[in-house]
Nucleic acid binder design. Structure first.
Lengths: 277, 277
DNA sequence: CGCAATCTTGAGAATGCTCAAAAGTGGTGG
DNA sequence: CCACCACTTTTGAGCATTCTCAAGATTGCG
């Protein structure tokens, strides 16, 4: 499979990027963030970072890839509580607890950073701007959880999936991880099912419906939303709960030609002309 | 609205009671809690305490009755996000936000107390034991929200209702508001429906099923659970997330002082220009 | 007593599930 | 390069759950 570049080489630091969508950061802040997020480790898919019942020990920062919070029922069911995207930090206040009530597991290959509790404590004490952004980030996580509950409780399956896609797209937009109208979506239909309370099979049919309507494209682990306004309207998605600042309108950091962008979009949408391989 | 004179006049302060289920309080702590919760106001059912979109102003403490957090969809649907029982405090960190993303509404006649932000700030700053309990209370609220999501995503209707009943019973038990195997349940079937993502009609049928099985009794706004273990097993209810009891003993609390919170809040809200400090 | 809200019941329909099998995909080792 | 494996996606069919609509019964309150 042709990668668009042989390596995604110098993506911007999504953590700093996310925090900057909440508050203004100084150069010193940015330098500090770069320093503490220097030591990445690569992690395979389906690796637990934190296990239900564990005593929390430090925090995890997602630098690349997708992870999730999840709970497992005794009867076997899995519920995904949140997707963790590049720039996301898990559970600022987690150190208060004696044991986790849910797990954190990678879903795709990930690059993650482990931050010691002391590092975070130091920031909370001494770097007001960053501390503020971290707190706001936590509040957004909680608001997101509330929004998921509404989504699950009030919407039929097809709108739940659509709503989820809107959220994932906009959140990636915030950290500069979208290209035109598309973004990464390295999730299986089973993952989507466990996040939305639907069955595997039903997710499949719902996706076909959304594709059929032209509301989304989904190919090669990339999601394309040709008309975000249309999909948002359909899903009753209002991004307010994500608290994306007015100044946070993302601009692609990587230069990309219009021609290439169109090629990618066409590819994702399921090229009208079948591509020979 | 006339006070009900013959009804339970000297119930214990549920707020203190709840906090004591998290940490040990001194006599001074208890006195202080009594003092700040002296000024109760009676509120009719269906009164909004906080409206979606409001700028938060202080906190509400439920002394008696049941309220809820809720969100309303544009399409008209209502989702209840949590029930607020006697002793519950809403949203400790709410002062960081510029507007609420959900409403808080009474469901039954309530006695509530409004606490000024400064009062809470003072406690967070100067009363470590209580501050710790308040933080733990917030963490329990979040864990409860996660549990609700699992309940909604993974369980059929009848188990959702059963799970909810277990939670409501155990939470009232914690603050001394149960009598034997029964507790108050001043909710309509419509409220239960909006909390569990079911329709009105279906809730009715589910209740009949639970009654028919002898798992619950429901009369005169009182819920009876003759065999809590049986109902818990049926609903796959594990009260661990409520952190009741000795296994949830206090941990070293990373204190967030009021000063720090205020600094953060100032930074987040006002402060258009970065303040040199 | 009468109104308004709530609860209850019935019937038909939509949504979403389970089971089962086939088809596609990607990775690995020979 | 191919064969094989595990995983994922897709499809079909029948069924369970839950919804909507509508009407009637009950309750609580003024």
């Amino acid at each position: 499979m042709a990668r668009m570049d042989n390596s995604p080489p110098r993506l911007p630091n999504p953590f700093a990027r996310k925090l900057e969508s909440f508050v203004e950061l100084s150069d010193a802040d940015r330098t500090m963030l770069e320093r503490i997020s220097a030591e990445r480790r690569s992690v395979a898919p389906h690796t637990p970072l934190v296990r239900e019942g564990d005593k929390p020990d430090g925090l995890w920062l997602i630098q690349d890839g997708v992870a999730c919070r999840q709970k497992t029922r005794v009867s076997g069911g899995r519920q995904i509580l949140a997707f963790l995207l590049p720039g996301d930090l898990c559970d600022l206040d987690v150190s208060l607890l004696d044991r986790m009530d849910h797990s954190i597991v990678t879903l795709s290959p990930c690059k993650v950073i482990h931050l010691a509790s002391e590092t975070i404590a130091d920031i909370l004490d001494n770097v007001p701007a960053v501390a503020c952004a971290l707190r706001l980030g936590t509040l957004v996580d909680e608001a997101t959880l509330r929004e998921w509950l509404v989504n699950l409780g009030c919407q039929p399956g097809v709108k739940r999936i659509a709503h989820l896609f809107c959220e994932l797209f906009v959140r990636q937009q915030r950290v500069g991880r979208t290209i035109g109208t598309s973004c990464a979506l390295p999730l299986t239909q089973g993952d989507l099912a466990d996040a939305t309370g639907l069955s595997n099979v039903h997710v499949n049919r719902v996706l076909q419906e959304l594709r059929g309507n032209g509301l989304i494209g989904l190919r090669d682990r990339r999601l394309t939303i040709p008309n975000l306004a249309a999909l948002s309207a359909f899903a009753e998605f209002d991004p307010g709960y994500l608290r994306i600042g007015p100044e946070a309108q993302p601009q692609p950091l990587r230069r990309i030609t219009a021609h290439r962008l169109n090629a990618i979009a066409a590819h994702c949408l399921g090229a009208p002309a079948p591509r020979p391989n």
